[in-house]
């Protein structure tokens, strides 16, 4: 039986899709059969981030409506064997996601895949609720910034009351924090919330801290999950986070400003 992971945040633009793509790719790199699903019906973007936008024929909604078979809609990643993408519809709206339909697709996927990563849309409406409803694990993607932290807290409340596990009185959805766009230098200047501040406020375990990195934009430009850019800080931080998700004890990196040597100052190459 596959495990269902939801990448959620409440707030938009914090890095859910980037993180979903990176995380799914990381799990596949570790040998797990992984599929990543775009729940953002009408605003499809996971396909672009994964670099498979020109290979989309059928989508998640087609499968829910019985217009296509799951195997027709799944796109196999060209770089990594164990990885598949289930894109969503660009023309329909979120009402196309029915609980029964989503459940049917997830059940079918969990027979073949070890991990199902659900890329949630922003907000707390239907699309986001459907993305988190069946989750076993939730990764809360948060920026060190007031509105993102507040919205994450709201989503934690929703997970604790409106997920399947909550409704059926099962063991609660596990919740872990992925703090993205972290800038240790601004933190040191007192301009940005510290990791510890966010942890204290949200009170959930820390999965990882992804530093603000130019590699993220570079990777999305070319349709490559940033985790594959192993030279970048962000790529390494995602690899660490995946290891921690799999239960390994990995020290947190990139949480303090890096001391710049003369050489790197001259080159001014930031990762």
């Amino acid at each position: 039986m596959g495990k269902i992971i939801v990448m959620t945040s409440g707030k938009g633009g914090v890095g859910k899709t980037t993180s979903s793509a990176a995380f799914a790719t990381g799990l596949a790199l570790r040998g797990f059969k992984t599929v990543v699903i775009d729940f953002d019906v009408g605003l499809r973007n996971l396909d672009l981030i994964m670099g498979c936008e020109r290979r989309v024929v059928f989508d998640f909604i087609n499968v829910i409506n019985g217009e296509a078979k799951l195997s027709q809609a799944l796109i196999k990643d060209k770089r990594i064997d164990n990885l598949s993408i289930l894109p969503t519809s660009q023309t329909r709206d979120k009402d196309a996601l029915t609980r029964e339909g989503v459940e049917k697709v997830l059940n079918e996927l969990s027979k073949d895949f070890d991990y199902i990563v659900c890329d949630s849309p922003a907000g707390i409406e239907r699309g986001a609720l459907m993305a988190l409803y069946f989750a076993d694990h939730a990764v809360i993607v948060t920026n060190p910034e007031v509105s993102s932290v507040r919205d994450s807290d709201r989503i934690l409340g929703v997970l604790a009351s409106r997920s399947r596990r909550a409704e059926q009185g099962l063991e609660p959805v596990t919740q872990q924090l992925l703090l993205t766009r972290y800038d240790p230098e601004r933190v040191e200047r007192g301009e940005m919330l510290k990791v510890d501040d966010v942890l204290e406020i949200l009170a959930i375990p820390l999965l990882g801290v992804i530093p603000e990195s130019q590699a993220v934009l570079r990777a999305s430009n070319v349709g490559m999950p940033v985790i594959l850019d192993e030279a970048s800080n962000a790529g390494q931080a995602y690899l660490d986070s995946v290891s921690r998700f799999l239960g390994e004890d990995v020290e947190h990196r990139f949480v303090t400003p890096q001391k710049k040597g003369l050489f790197s100052r001259l080159l001014r190459r930031s990762a």
């Binding site: 507040r150 807290d153 709201r154 933190v187 007192g190 301009e191 510290k194 501040d197 406020i201």
Partner: peptide, 22 residues
Amino acid sequence: RASAVQAKERLQIVMAHERAGR
């Protein structure tokens, strides 16, 4: 006073209130 300190204080106040209401 560092703005991050203010951010934390404001969040703690508003969220204590919202959690209670929830």
